[in-house]
Amino acid sequence: MKKPDTLSTPGAAIASYTAIGDSFTEGVGDPGPDGTYVGWADRLAVMLAEQHPRHELRYANLAVRGRLLDQIVAEQVPRAVELAADLVTFCGGGNDILRPGTDPDAVAERFEEAVAALARSSGTVLIATGFDTRGVPVLRHLRGKIATYNAHLRAIADRHGCLVLDLWSLRSVQDRRAWSEDRLHLSPEGHRRVALRAAEVLGVAASGRAEEPWPPEAVRTPADARRENIQWAREHLVPWIGRRLRGESSGDRVSAKRPDLLPLP
């Protein structure tokens, strides 16, 4: 199948879109009114639908929180290949990189095998890099590991003709308000910024800019920061460590929210 020329034809019509990945693409941190997570991929789907209102967009989101790359490859990639959408967004490997002892080179090799399969069956494949974690407590020590993985992802995109959603360079998500209370997932505004950046990469018109300035924030004292850190550790860090020790995942017993290519409501 010939890929749409989204680079030379900004806003080229996309009639179908499949998103695969983990909690980031499922939309954790961005709850909707019915309790289902929204997230950047759902927001991007709306932008795509608004770009060409006369053409009904069909959208599937196969992402499930907590999934490791091998699980995404086994559970989601075959379905995405079967659906053969005009656009596939693929973000995976982040949960692997967070685990001690994982080799970003080995993770990237498995990622590339999946990208090759998606590129053969779908129109345009867009892959997302990891975020720059320099300002994120606990995760800042993984910055070099994430950067190594990102370098692989950019090379993979180049080899297979994919677009890149470069989240490392997205400065607006360095603001703490872009992140939810657990400091691992984006807030609703963070998801909106990522969706806007994805729209920019695809050449899709949107009402807003990914790097639009944040409004002024109230001054926080060192005492405020200490209280927030203690609350975060008690409510989020300790339970996260407990799940790791028990071999549990936040995605256990969770299934994809949009397993089929269906029109948006």
Score class of each variant (00 low, 15 high):
194 V>M: 10
205 A>Q: 15
165 L>M: 08
42 D>W: 03
93 G>P: 06
134 R>V: 05
136 V>G: 03
83 L>W: 06
185 H>N: 14
35 G>Y: 03
127 I>R: 05
260 D>C: 12
182 D>F: 00
67 R>Q: 15
132 D>G: 09
155 A>M: 00
179 W>T: 01
253 R>A: 15
123 G>M: 03
73 V>T: 12
193 R>Q: 12
193 R>H: 12
258 R>M: 05
186 L>N: 09
233 A>S: 13
192 R>T: 15
265 P>N: 14
263 P>A: 13
75 E>I: 02
114 A>Q: 01
63 A>C: 03
26 E>W: 03
187 S>W: 05
24 F>D: 10
256 A>W: 02
63 A>S: 12
197 R>N: 11
195 A>T: 07
258 R>I: 05
211 E>Y: 11
229 N>R: 11
208 G>F: 06
167 L>Q: 13
20 I>H: 08
67 R>Y: 14
172 S>R: 06
67 R>I: 00
123 G>V: 01
39 G>F: 01
48 L>T: 12
25 T>V: 15
221 T>Q: 11
138 V>A: 05
185 H>Y: 08
210 A>F: 09
111 F>Q: 03
47 M>Q: 15
28 V>T: 12
232 W>D: 00
155 A>T: 00
212 E>P: 12
83 L>K: 05
25 T>E: 12
43 R>F: 02
247 G>Y: 10
127 I>N: 02
157 A>N: 00
211 E>R: 11
62 L>A: 10
112 E>W: 02
93 G>V: 04
141 H>T: 11
152 H>I: 00
198 A>S: 11
150 N>S: 04
220 R>G: 01
118 L>Y: 06
204 V>E: 14
133 T>P: 15
127 I>S: 04
248 E>D: 14
26 E>L: 07
20 I>D: 09
242 G>K: 13
193 R>I: 09
59 Y>Q: 12
153 L>D: 01
221 T>R: 07
15 A>K: 13
252 D>H: 11
262 L>S: 15
27 G>C: 10
78 P>K: 08
49 A>I: 05
159 R>V: 00
166 D>Q: 00
81 V>H: 10
195 A>M: 09
210 A>K: 09
16 S>T: 15
187 S>P: 04
180 S>I: 00
162 C>S: 02
225 A>G: 01
111 F>D: 04
170 L>N: 07
38 V>F: 08
193 R>W: 09
141 H>I: 09
30 D>L: 05
143 R>K: 07
196 L>Y: 09
76 Q>C: 10
91 C>S: 15
53 P>H: 05
238 V>G: 07
